[in-house]
Amino acid sequence: MRNIRWIAIIPFLALIIGPFFVNRVDPLILGLPFLLAWIVVWILITSLIMAVIYAADPANRGNES
């Protein structure tokens, strides 16, 4: 389970490399230009990813030291 923390790399790929493939206006997603929508969606996914990492991290279980 410790290896699951490597999924933290995904937001970096999505937000640093990703824009090269999605730098366009259309289609508008929920009214947003496609590039902006891409960033917003990835922020939501990032929060989810961090929640998964948090849940899997043994440091967050039991009593706090």
Binding site: R5, P11, I53
Partner: peptide
């Protein structure tokens, strides 16, 4: 659009912050 960078960098900084 260059303004979008403000959204992106904070998000990545928070990912780093966990570790």
């Amino acid at each position: 659009a260059p303004a979008y960078y403000i959204l992106s960098y904070g998000t990545l900084a928070y990912v780093l912050s966990y570790f």
